[in-house]
Computed example of a mutant assay.
Amino acid sequence: MILGLRTAIYPVKDLAAAKDWYSQVTGQAPYFDQPFYVGFSVGGFELGLVPEGESSVAGAQPLWGVQNAEMAFAKLLSLGASALEPVTEVGGGTKVAAVTDPFGNRLGIIENPHFNPTAVK
């Protein structure tokens, strides 16, 4: 069911400063730059920034790739997870969702038709 890591999202209070810092860290400008989300393509994976979040060592939200978000979400629930964030289409055919696993951890999934597995390093 899980294909591999696709995206790690980091909440930040100052999106402009974080965009500048991560541009330096990644050595590139973001490929997606909006007030609600900034995304960098890093070795075939995505490093995302979301504004007005509480940064912490527990703040990253990795999203695990799936072929079908609705089916994967239903399967996770059937295995004892609790719905945290319903399947939501976020643009361009990309769908995300999250559950709380039976142990209290956040587990995020993403169906991303734009993900290029040949770019993974």
Rank of each mutant, 00 (worst) to 15 (best):
D101H: 11
G53R: 04
A83I: 12
G27R: 02
T26A: 03
G44L: 03
L76R: 06
V25Q: 12
A16R: 06
K19M: 01
R106E: 04
V66H: 01
G91P: 13
M71R: 15
E85I: 11
E85T: 11
Q28P: 01
W21L: 09
A81Y: 03
A81V: 10
T88G: 14
N105W: 03
G43K: 00
Q67R: 13
F40Q: 01
V57T: 14
F45Q: 07
S23T: 04
L77C: 12
A74N: 14
P102Y: 15
K95P: 05
E54C: 05
P11R: 05
F40L: 02
E70S: 10
L15R: 00
E85K: 12
T26W: 00
V99L: 06
A74D: 14
L84N: 07
T100L: 09
V50Q: 08
V25K: 10
L77P: 02
L79Y: 10
Q28M: 04
P62C: 11
P102Q: 15
G53N: 09
D101F: 02
L107R: 09
L63F: 11
Y31I: 04
E46G: 02
K13M: 09
P51D: 08
G27A: 08
G53S: 10
I110C: 01
G93I: 04
G43C: 05
G65H: 05
L79I: 07
S82D: 15
M71A: 15
L63A: 08
G108I: 02
I109Y: 05
V66A: 07
T94L: 14
E85R: 15
G53F: 07
E85L: 12
P30K: 13
